[in-house]
Write a protein that binds this DNA or RNA. Structure first.
Lengths: 239, 239
DNA sequence: TAGTGGTCTAGACCACAGC
DNA sequence: CTGTGGTCTAGACCACTAG
């Protein structure tokens, strides 16, 4: 009898996946190794080919396997050029550390996009909101932020009070499903920024820039500056 | 007639997926919106539920949808706290820019792990390989690297000539399927490192640390230092 | 309790790469 | 050619949960 339902704790496809994953991670199956054919997995686990396929496909998507028609399925060569980077929402991050979050709004002006704005936001014109603010954790400066919001894309941003809610958090909750690109560099902060962050002029800081859009529409540009030694971005291989 | 095979260019599950993705990204379906039930998709596309399920499951895994039994499937709230970070293999990266890569091996010694090594590699003892090297692009200093390799895990590393092949590239090709954690900070380089990189003392640099292991076994620790303004890490949301 | 998604089956045809 | 993976079907039972 091919017992129809999973009586074990795990779904069959999940157990197959775990099985393969363990063998790869332990080194038993090295890159290039041909794993058993799908019909062999069917026999091994007494399940249908669809179930086997579900397990294999998920591992292919995860990058651990590669399938070639007529040849079989193979352990893929590892390439950890990709890691899952945690990009913080500052308010949530500060709160997670058990610290009191506060935002100080330095400047918030609506204006017609000038040349600099156009270049950063990658728009050809229209109205924007330009924001400068400072993030605090327990009354210690935590980060500086310079942000541009495209009011043609997000007109309701014009009426928001960003002296209480950080613009990043507000946007995250009000602009659904955007795409983003990030750029991380190290900079020596100038005197003004250093004073605002409570560090020495020239102190090494992380600059995290983010461009966000939805479809063809540019939403926002943000640049956040963090003191380099207090702050670390962490990335894990294999999300 | 339920035409059996995909005569269109795309597989059915792929077209369903694209359909949903487009509606979400365009803003037509906002977070929290309940998308049609699986049996409705069956009718819409004239396909079986397994095919619909394949499309929906892949979007759930991608984080665009959330399924709740008995309730339906919903557009997930966007949280781009995750981005796919490209972690460079230095040699490949330099070559990609059309520049000539060269490595300069400053130091390479085998030794019993001292306390500092143990802390960085997270091992309790054993032999390690400690490497200091400098990476060049067209004879310009590109990055400094400090690396520890656990020889208990990778004994064959002891016999490799790292004056021609960068240790990161060698490990990538010889140690299959590891996991890794990365940490990115900004630092003011000291005089010695500044001289080696050809920048001023105190110049802001990116420090990229990487811990690598397979199973329970620690493989390597690496710290790479890049001049901050020449170098940028780029991350895309949604791999 | 009714109806959703989660999982699974035992077949099937097709495209394609290796022989 | 042959046999692999890629895709699909028309059902099915189950677990869970919203009402």
């Amino acid at each position: 009898m091919t017992e129809q339902k999973n009586k074990s704790a795990q779904a069959i496809h999940s157990r197959i996946r775990q099985d393969i994953e363990t063998r790869i991670m332990s080194g038993e199956w090295r890159p290039g190794h041909r794993i058993p054919y799908e019909h062999e997995w069917m026999a091994l686990y007494g399940c249908s080919r669809m179930t086997v396929n579900k397990a294999l496909r998920s591992l292919v998507q995860a990058g651990l396997l590669e399938s070639r028609r007529r040849a079989g399925t193979f352990v893929a060569a590892p390439r950890f050029h990709r890691a899952a980077l945690e990009i913080p929402d500052i308010r949530a991050e500060v709160a997670e550390q058990g610290l009191a979050y506060r935002i100080e709004l330095i400047r918030c002006e609506r204006r017609h996009a000038d040349d600099g704005d156009k270049a950063l936001l990658q728009v050809s014109g229209g109205d924007i909101l330009a924001i400068e603010c400072r993030h605090f954790a327990d009354d210690q400066p935590y980060a500086l932020e310079h942000r541009l919001i495209n009011l043609d894309a997000v007109p309701e941003a014009a009426g928001v009070d960003f002296s209480t809610e950080p613009p990043g958090s507000w946007l995250l909750g009000h602009v659904p499903w955007t795409e983003a690109e990030h750029r991380i560099t190290a900079i020596n902060v100038d005197a003004a920024a250093a004073a605002q962050l409570g560090v020495a002029t020239g102190h090494a800081c992380i600059s995290l820039e983010r461009w966000t859009w939805r479809g063809d529409e540019r939403i926002t540009y943000a640049r956040q500056v963090y003191p380099g030694e207090r702050y670390a971005l962490v990335a894990h291989f294999r999300a």
